[in-house]
Amino acid sequence: MAALIPDVVEDALVIVEPPSRRRWPRLRVWRAVVLFIAGAYFLIPIYAGLRFSFENDAGHLSLYAVKAIPSEPGFSAAFWLSMRLAVVTLALTLVLMVPTSVYVHLKFPRLRRLLDFVTILPIVIPPIVLILGVLRAAPLWLRASPYLLSLVYVILSMPFVYRSLDAGLSAIDLKTLVEASRSLGGNWLNTLWRVVVPNLRSALLSATVLTLALVLGEFTMASLDLWTTLPVWIYQFQQVDAHVSTAVSMVSLVGTWLLITLIVSLDRSQSRRARRRTKNS
């Protein structure tokens, strides 16, 4: 009897037959109704906000509010303050969270639970309570600086950033990647920068987007710390001209969305290209 050598097995390990299910027309109608109601609830306020931004007091379509934004008193100061805070927050967050998450995933998987716990605390602790404590505990020189807000925003963004990094790290075979790089002579910094980070690109992107959105929209802490960031300015300016306030709010909203869409689609086309490349080779 000859031994049977399963030469072919490795060719056939992946099942590619698509799992398909029957579709019930009932389900489709039901889905359409749900999506319609959800669409209306989520889109009408956006439409209303946009409409209000492009209206003058008489209720006629007008670009005056949008045009007036840059020249309104205090706007550009508030805008640039928000931008600076966003950049500082983002840099701090990534420098703090990326090496830590990678290290824990790689060397101390048991610490993941601890990290899970710590990074969920900012959700448990309401921003309003946190800023209450921060304003009481922070030294005076720090309280005098707007960057105190950045330091706190890092804490606020931890849940989102850690969770997307954690998901990204779980999705790749980090251990093998790192061991491969190390065995090929890469040092830790090289490995982190050239092997881990590129493989975490989507996770990093979503962490970035979430952090930026958080900082640019944060109102509670900024208003209580008495810094006129963009959201605080919008709120205050409402008394002067609600159309302009709404216009700024909608522009910042649309801007954030465009940014997200842009980053996500860039990432997608890049990964698609990468996939095509691996397929060709």
Binding site: V8, D11, A12, L13, V14, I15, V16, E17, R21
Partner: peptide, 18 residues
Amino acid sequence: GPSGCGKTTALRVLAGFE
């Protein structure tokens, strides 16, 4: 058969899933 040869589909047809 190799993957994609239809063997799983055949089974699922028999089971009534396809």
